[in-house]
């Protein structure tokens, strides 16, 4: 509190995710962003995470579809969560703007979910499929996952870019397809290591039994850090 401030306001102003508490003083939900190119498996990962964690955590999801309600509808159809826990944000032909440059619609969606169904433990924000430079603002999420897949070319980790290089977790999905598309998983792992240093990489196949486990474990670690008031971002641990 600044002593020279002429007025004091009784309520807290949470303009961004920077403030860890809600207006009522309780700790808000951990917010994790999932980004990555079109079709890499973001929605499939969100759905699998919800199924793996919903029995022990209170979860909600925000989707950012580019021009349809595909993602939100997929989650609804598959009943991974009750409808009141899923919100869709429209992005005006520019999915990266909505998660990075102008996060107001997403923040509003997150807060509405928290008000409507809270208290929540975890909010997953799925970006619309975008390019390799799309990252989430730290004003919107506490940590982010970048999902790529083996079938879109095994040179993506080598190409780098902000998503691959700086995401708190890089997920290389659809490993079950590697033999059919001739992708070199060891090479991808080496390139990812060269781009990311000690930041973690998970290879997943969501076709397999419990295929989302490495991502779910990572989320639970972040949540433990969040709940304990420790830094959430892998880089800061």
């Amino acid at each position: 509190m600044h002593l020279d401030h002429p007025e004091t306001f009784p309520h807290r102003h949470t303009w961004s995710s920077a403030a860890p508490t809600l207006p009522d003083g309780t700790r808000r939900a951990l917010r994790i962003g999932l980004g990555g190119p079109v079709g890499s498996g973001k929605t499939a990962t969100v759905a699998a995470l919800c199924r793996a964690l919903r029995d022990r955590l209170s979860i909600a999801v925000v989707t950012n579809d580019i021009y349809t309600r595909e993602d939100a509808d997929f989650l609804l159809r598959n009943a991974v969560l009750p409808p009141e826990r899923i919100a869709a944000v429209e992005t005006g032909a520019c999915p990266h703007t909505a998660i990075r440059d102008d996060i107001s619609a997403n923040l509003e969606a997150v807060e509405e979910l928290e008000e409507r169904t809270g208290p929540l433990d975890l909010v997953l924000v799925e970006s619309g499929g975008d390019n390799l430079t799309a990252t989430f603002s730290t004003g919107l999420v506490d940590a982010q996952v970048f999902v790529i897949d083996v079938a879109a070319g095994d040179d993506i980790p080598r190409k780098g870019g902000p998503g691959v290089t700086t995401a708190d977790l890089l997920v290389v999905n659809k490993t079950d397809l590697a033999p059919y598309v001739g992708s070199d998983l060891d090479g991808m792992a080496r390139d990812a290591k060269a781009q990311r240093g000690d930041l973690p990489v998970a290879f997943t196949s969501l076709r397999g039994e419990d295929g989302v486990r490495p991502v779910a474990d990572w989320v639970l670690e972040r949540l433990a850090a969040w709940t304990a008031g420790r830094p959430v971002r892998a880089a800061a641990v």
Binding site: C94, A98, D102
Partner: peptide, 11 residues
């Protein structure tokens, strides 16, 4: 137009 107030999603 870059003022972050949500206008980019509206036509």
């Amino acid at each position: 137009g870059r003022f972050p107030a949500g206008a980019h999603a509206h036509s």
